[in-house]
Structure formats: structure tokens, C-alpha cells
Write a protein that binds this DNA or RNA. Structure first.
Lengths: 238, 238
DNA sequence: AAGGAACGAGAGCGGTGCTCTTGACAAGGG
DNA sequence: CCCTTGTCAAGAGCACCGCTCTCGTTCCTT
């Protein structure tokens, strides 16, 4: 159950103070996250910076994991918003431009917020199971991809490759369900290529951020753009 | 400087005992890693299981980070050996089969050793900088890819796409240096497609292991094989 | 105005990585 | 053969961690 003050406007002074302090705790935790990473996030350090005692934090977040969950949700929302904004800035019929803008936005966001990226797309925190609250925000960025795929295939602007290999039945049904869940019409082969490109996109960002490109690719900007073009080709976006 | 007993055979009983204990510590730490993950790896717990006191461990590893480094090197070696074995089991001229076998081997290794995979390909440990000892083992698996690319292009068994887009100059030189460092001859465009496929491969493994495919792809086996085929096509391997 | 809920402070528990000192013991040279 | 030298495990201790509990206080509701 979400905190009531997020849905209704807080009335009492106490509720206002609570909402404000909750925000301050998250902000401080986020800034600590940017410096020390998720494993090094310390409740005591956050409390210290806020001039309060560590036990007082437990009035606002029942555990360190719950605080992490809040940060995860914020991170998913943040990257989702970045993707949506980049996508919305491109003409709707320009599927190619939309995918490239979205890809670039995701990489930029990740480079600007590496620890938040690692928090949601990196190694899972052991012993921590993401609660259901996170799956909604988590789908926000992928939905951008799926919408542009749906738009492009509705307009007939997705070129199918010449010798199309058959999609395994189980994969086809997985992808059909995925599109149906989102209320979108995307032919499974096109969605398959989209998911592959999406996977490669995040693979590239992870490789870059996690140091696998050191001594391999120096000009990561040029490489990413080049790769993004190849992935757009692979999807068949015009 | 590496410990002397790893290069020369230990003579004295003391040196033998030291080598044995070092091995036991690493083994125990690895098994703890598989249960709690890297952030939860505790020197004290390892010492406890070995029936010794925590401070005694510092005779063998100067810090927790050094122990982690040893585990990282072992993990790189382990995945590299798995890739090499899978590659070697396929006829040398069968570039397509070699890439698929290598990809499957990497995924299998990752699924069997998820925490070790996360250790090397997941979020970096904050405040921990990988020392130079790790770069050698780290290149072992990618070298498998590069060797099969070199073999395939030497045999003229890499089909170039019809409308080849130009490679940015900086990327071209990065890739040329990469091949030259390995002492291999791979045309930059082919290597570019190889690195892209490699990136996508690890992106897929990371997505699967880190939970991004939950509620998206159910039949991950079929999906991975399908994707591996598309990546082999993308490289142009015959 | 009164009762109860929410709050911050503090002490404390068991855990962590790491340092330093101490005493036992083995290795090797005189 | 003895004795110096270096290695070793053990223990105490430091500063930190997440978390729990208690205790007054403050605020809100009835």
C-alpha cells in the first residue's frame, strides 16, 4: 500500500513534514548512491547528513531494502521519462529517428546516472527481490520501443528481411502475449527484431559503463552511434 | 608480483601448506560467492568455515579486494576456458558453428555461475578498481571470437552485407588496433559486426540473468538460440 | 481537554573489514 | 647444536554497519 500523502494532498503540518522529509531522505540517498554505489549506501550516513539519528529513518522506510526499492522505482521512472521525452521530440512517423533518439537518450541517461543504471540494469542485489511496485515503472522505457514498433508496422514502414527465418512457436507466443499485454499490434517477427535490438542496446551501454570496452573501443561515442544505426537497420525501420 | 609458489613448485612444507590454504580460502570464498554474491562476501565467514580466525586470512590475502581480484581472475579464466573448449569442439572451418557453440557455452557458464558472471560482467564494485592482472584473463573469451572471425575471413567465408555503411574513421582505427594487438587479420567491418554481436550476446545473458526478461520471454532457451542465429547472420558467418 | 498515534533520541545487539600485538613454532646459518 | 630470523594463528580492539527497543515528547484527532 503506497503512502497516503502521495495520492491525496497532505493536510496537517505533520503530514507535510513527513512528505518533505521522505523526499529529503530519498534525495540524500540518491546523492550517496552516486558516490558510493548501492552496496555502499548507508542508512547511518544518510541520517548523519540529515542531522538525525539512524533509528529515526526507520519511521520513514521500514528497512534499507525498502529505501533501495524507492530508489529503483525512481530510477526506472527517470530513464523511462528520458526515453519518452526523446521519442516524443521526433516526428511520429519517423520510426528510424525515434529509435535512434530513444537509444541515445538511454545511453545519455546511463552515463549521467551510472549508479542508478547499475541499480536497475546491473547485477541484482543478493537477497533482494524486487517487489511488484517496480514492474510498472520498469516497463516504461520498453513501452517506448513497442509503441514506435507498432506505429511503424501499422504504417507499413518496417522492411522485412529477404530470407526470413521462422520464429519458434514458443517465442512467437511469448512475443504475441507481450504485444497484447501492452494493447499494441506488432507482428511477432518485427517485435523479435526489436527485442534483439533492445537487448543489444543495453548490452552496449552495460559494456561501456561496466568497463568492458576499456582498451577495446576508445571512441565510444562514434561506436555507439554506428551500432545504433546497425540496430535500426536490423529492425528494418525506415 | 605474483606469489612465488604459483610459478615454481613449492619446496618446503611451509610453502606447501601455504599454497594449500590459499586454494582452500579461494574455494570457500567462491562457494560463499555463489550463495551471497560479491557484496555479501565476508572474510569472517570464510575464516569461520575454515576454522580459523579472521585476522589469519590477512596472511594470505592483504585485503578483501585482493581476494575479490583473485576470484575475478578465476572467473575470467573459467568463462574463457568454457568458450575455448566449446570453440575447439567444432570443425575449424565452420565459423557459424563455432560462434554458436561459443555463445551457448558462455550462456551455460553464466547460468551455472551467476554470481561469478555478475562479478565480472555486472555492476562494478564501487571503490574497487580492477588491477592489471585481470586484463589478460579478461581477453581470453573475446579472443575466441576474434580467432574465429580471422579464420572465417581468411577463408573468405564471411559474407558482407549488400549495402555496406561506412565505418567511422575512429572506429575503424580502434578495431584495426584491436585486431593488430591480437596478432590477427580481421577486416574492420567484419570485426565491427563481431563486436556488435558479442555485445548483443552478453546483453542477452545479462538481461536473462538480471531479471529483465521476467514477464517478457518465458522460453529463454528458444529465444536465446533464435537470437544467436540472428547474430550469426548479422556477422555474415557461413 | 484527553487519549493515542507519530516522532526523534539514545542505547544496545550482532555483524563487518581491518590493524596491531603477542606468543608459538619452523627454517636455516653459524 | 643452538640461535637468530621470519612466518604463523590468535586475540583484542577500532570504527563502521543494519536493525530493534525503550523512552520521553509532540502533534493530531476525537
Amino acid at each position: 500500500m503506497p503512502d497516503p500523502e502521495s495520492t491525496s494532498a497532505p493536510r496537517t503540518a505533520r503530514a507535510i513534514a513527513r512528505a518533505e522529509l521522505t523526499r529529503q531522505i530519498k534525495d540524500t540517498a540518491r546523492s550517496h548512491l552516486a558516490e558510493t554505489g548501492a552496496p555502499g549506501l548507508s542508512l547511518r550516513a544518510v541520517a548523519r547528513e540529515l542531522g538525525m539519528v539512524s533509528s529515526a529513518l526507520y519511521r520513514y522506510f521500514p528497512s534499507r531494502d525498502e529505501l533501495l526499492t524507492a530508489l529503483i522505482i525512481d530510477a526506472y521512472d527517470s530513464v523511462g521519462a528520458a526515453a519518452e521525452a526523446a521519442d516524443a521530440a521526433v516526428r511520429r512517423s519517423d520510426g528510424r529517428g525515434r529509435f535512434r533518439a530513444t537509444g541515445r537518450a538511454i545511453r545519455s541517461w546511463a552515463r549521467a546516472n551510472p549508479h542508478e543504471y547499475a541499480l536497475v540494469y546491473g547485477s541484482p542485489v543478493p537477497g533482494y527481490a524486487a517487489p511488484e511496485d517496480t514492474i510498472g515503472p520498469a516497463t516504461r522505457a520498453p513501452l517506448v520501443l513497442m509503441r514506435l514498433l507498432a506505429d511503424a508496422s501499422a504504417a507499413g514502414r518496417v522492411t522485412e528481411p529477404d530470407h526470413q527465418p521462422g520464429l519458434p512457436a514458443s517465442v512467437r507466443s511469448d512475443l504475441a502475449r507481450l504485444a497484447a499485454d501492452a494493447g499494441l499490434e506488432i507482428p511477432p517477427p518485427a517485435l523479435a527484431r526489436g527485442v534483439l535490438a533492445w537487448t543489444a542496446l543495453f548490452g552496449a551501454v552495460s559494456f561501456e559503463l561496466f568497463g568492458q570496452f576499456v582498451n577495446v573501443i576508445d571512441d565510444t561515442d562514434a561506436w555507439f552511434d554506428h551500432q545504433l544505426d546497425r540496430l535500426t537497420d536490423l529492425i528494418g525501420l525506415q
